[in-house]
Write a protein that binds this DNA or RNA. Structure first.
Lengths: 194, 194
DNA sequence: GTCTATATCGAGATAGAC
DNA sequence: GTCTATCTCGATATAGAC
């Protein structure tokens, strides 16, 4: 079939994406990906020049996926405040994965900061997709001047929750902090309407 | 000299400690440590059975170092509120390192959660040293019931600040968040005295 | 396009001389 | 105690058959 090659390429990216999340980038070998997919090691080099290129494709795939996801949220969730709550609740919805493997964005950036500092700039595009969307929502709520600061603050709070609940494998902590963060945001929103 | 062997062992641990922080555990080889110290690769196995044992020694050394540091703070800083501020300010004092390499505790736990899940329990002892000390300080301030929750919250806030300022290499953000966190804590302390 | 076979390299680890 | 030499393994990457 015509698109078989492209389909395999996509499957490589999807499989690598998940394995990089579960095991880390450096700790995931071609054999790991090949075994998980049922293809041979040599086949990778028809689709990618190097492991670095796979990493790049995974980062791009994630950026695209997050962008589409946020676009869906814009469509299906009526107001910016509800959208922001839905964003914060993402950690509760993914609590199993976060407790087991941390945040896919933060843990990859943390790894690359140590091992491949030159690709960190690409990797933190995963963060800026969320940050820019958060700024948009916050501005819709009238938080003009504080939008950028609050967006970064929300990113950091999310990272803190992910890192600590992962280190302690503590789901209760995650849920408690998510709840608290929504309450904090509500107070910030209230401040502006007075 | 009598203690030469022990001294080398200590130097291995110190050098590995720093390299694990800068480059990550898996990404640091025996050659890296040997080159940094000016000893040969084979010599490691007189002092340690395996790389895993070095990791263990590094974790224990950090736990000891943090414990002693906090004990020093107890001596030199008069009140619990000032101590807590000094704790939060630790990130400002280490801002260069944190922006370049993240938090030594959090980034190691994040790595081990993916690659050596069985040693994560040992690694998060590095967190509990701080958590237990925070609980003590918070109880001294009369925050009896909330002490544990707030201690975990402070750990998470610190991790969020480290992860995001590292990913964006953003010192300004780090300082802003540190200031904000101290203000938040002051409000929590005020709540209890009323 | 996908495979097998292989080259090359660097890792952790061991043996034994000094 | 520290060294050199070496073993073994698994990693990325390449060559070429099919």
């Amino acid at each position: 079939m015509r698109n078989k090659g492209a389909a395999v390429r996509q499957r490589i990216v999807d499989t690598a994406d998940q394995l990089f999340y579960h095991q880390g980038y450096e700790n995931t070998s071609f054999s790991d990906i090949a075994d998980a997919m049922g293809i041979s090691r040599g086949n990778f080099y028809y689709h990618f020049k190097s492991k670095d290129e796979i990493l790049n494709a995974v980062i791009n795939a994630r950026v695209t996926r997050f962008t589409e996801m946020l676009s869906e949220w814009d469509k299906k969730i009526p107001g910016p405040k509800q959208r922001l709550h839905y964003y914060i609740d993402m950690q509760s919805r993914n609590q199993e994965n976060i407790v087991s493997h941390g945040c896919p964005v933060g843990s990859l950036c943390t790894e690359l900061a140590k091992t491949r500092h030159s690709t960190l700039v690409d990797a933190n595009q995963m963060f800026t997709v969320f940050r820019d969307w958060l700024i948009t929502q916050l501005k819709l709520l009238g938080l003009k001047n504080k939008a950028k600061l609050i967006s970064m603050h929300l990113l950091a709070r999310g990272q803190g929750i992910a890192t600590v609940s992962n280190a302690f494998e503590d789901k209760e902590f995650l849920r408690r902090e998510v709840k608290q963060l929504k309450q904090w945001l509500d107070v910030e929103i209230l401040k502006v309407s007075h």
